[in-house]
Design a binder for these strands. Sequence first.
RNA 1: GGGGACGUAGCUCAGUUGGUUAGAGCGCUGCCCUGUCACGGCAGAGGUCGCGGGUUCGAGCCCCGUCGUCCCCGCCA
Length: 623
Amino acid sequence: MTLDFLGTLQRTHTCGELRASDAGKSVVLLGWVNRRRDHGNLIFLDLRDRYGISQVVLDKDLGDAAHAKAEQARPEYVVAAVGKVRLRGKDVVNPKMATGEVEIVAEELRILNDAKVPPFSPAEDAIANEEVRLKYRYLDLRRPEMQHNFEVRHKVALAVREYLSGQGFYEIETPFMTRSTPEGARDYLVPSRVHPGNFYALPQSPQLFKQILMISGMDRYFQIARCFRDEDLRADRQPEFTQIDLEMTFPQQETVFRIVEGFLSAAFKAVGITLPTPFPQITYDEAMRNYGIDKPDLRLPGLTDVKSAFTAENLAALQIDASLPVVALRIPKVGELSRKERDDNKPLFDTRKGAKYIDDLKRLEKGFPEAAAKVRELAQGGADDLLIVVAGDAATHIKASDTKSAGRLSEREIAIYSAAGNFRVELAKKYADRHGAFAVTDAAVNSPERDTGLTDGSAAFRPIWVTDFPMFEHDEETGKWMPSHHPFTSPHEEDMDRLVSDPASVRARYYDVAMNGLELGSGSIRIHQQQVQQEIFRALGMSDEEARERFGFFLEALQYGTPPHGGIALGLDRIVMILAGANSLREVIAFPKTAKAIDLMVDAPTPVSEQQLRELHIRPTKG
RNA sequence: GGGGACGUAGCUCAGUUGGUUAGAGCGCUGCCCUGUCACGGCAGAGGUCGCGGGUUCGAGCCCCGUCGUCCCCGCCA
């Protein structure tokens, strides 16, 4: 088949914009053949582009040549249709299509390019398996759903840029080829040709650069920054991902919060969803007590302390450790579970750290009617709610080097709360059809109002600030105190005197923003005084020499008039994932990698030539 | 590093207790069709059952290994 040339043709309209009011216009449409319906002397071609689909009609009586071209057209061919917009007859209007009131009567059809039969059709609703989708990513990205996801992504990024620019933030780029910074992940390394045996690292985040930009007097910085971490992947983790990264001088924690609330609500508004501000706040300890997790999903009720429902005798009889929390989790409208359902749920509960649970309230009611009634009352359990009591198992003896510290949760307490919190999340996922709390989010994501106006997102999207994380974590293996985050996070000023005497009690000026059970971002007020920085390093058991070796350039910079500063980084991919209603980051990243960090389209990584390796002074030990 | 699910036609999947020539829908090819929009009708092509080994008279099915994709734990503040 000979292909046609575009010639001087110019697109007059996209495939998504023609309406009844355009009837009579002469138009040129350019796009892909979505479908062909061949009735013999009458052929319909659906033309598709990013903007939509329009029907082109080819009537043999009205033009033999154009009709003949249409006979040759096949799905995914690229064609130009020249013709007139015509109102469709009343009985053939297609209300399912935005352009369904009109059609283009083609006077000329040019086939600008043909296409092999694709391994899967972008026009089909059924989606192929991910391996095929990723290999032929360009076909996958043609699908309207994917095009929509990237529209969302673009709008979010643009809204963030506009908002932050309006707040005085400069967008400043930082290097990709740099040295290892202190996030705890493995680095992707780039070998140096001119310095044998030396490597650059790709940034896990621009953390130290943005702090140095504050020292540099840039006052307010942001960047939509690519970050790289060489760790095993998950549905919500890719080896390279994008953060909305920002830093500012002289902030209070609340200053950062207002900025983030501002750009998040602007981003949501850009895709048609209102997000009320300010976001609620809870401390890390409250989050653990109330939700058993540091990224609570507020769409469902939290945990309830129900220890007071039980007498000491009750607890002893139930083999419950009275020194540990006793909490109830409630999932609305799940109803009573059958014996089989309860058995099926067993693997969802983590018993490794001495937690156990009672999910048969009927039995509890038989043996301990008063306690059961009190649990139901405290947890405000409706008749059709699923209620489960989680507690410490008195029968398991955890060899606990427990780190109880004044005013903070102990590791064993956290273990009980976590077991309950994770169980809550798992059961909520499993019984989503029954409680319906997640369907609200799906409905908001798919709301048709978003095209025309604003949808209320207050029930569907539940952001929350989590503050006052512990400064240190106890490493069970080494017995050392480790920074919970990076070691440049400032402790609370009033906790500083306990850095050595009681590290577990020290709160960090560190905060997370979470939404619907997903961590969206985290940040902190940083240390700006060299002396405090040294104290932190010492508390971490790091010698001055070691600190100098790892962060010397930064410690040096700290000494030249560093202003108080702080900031945050939010995962752009995750925000878009929520707004797209997707279950995986791969749905919102144009060219993502598989769970084994492989790019199936370009087939990376690959071996390289001996020559390249020699130049880089590298000799692989295998492969 | 560990656990789980999946792998059969281009795509989505079925395939009984191990038994003759491995099926369906969509897609594809050809012919027919002037109002379809998931068009329709007739005919047809299309298979290394992921790969390797084993058990067996006989393996898509059982066993061992291996590769790939996905999910989870560890890991990732």
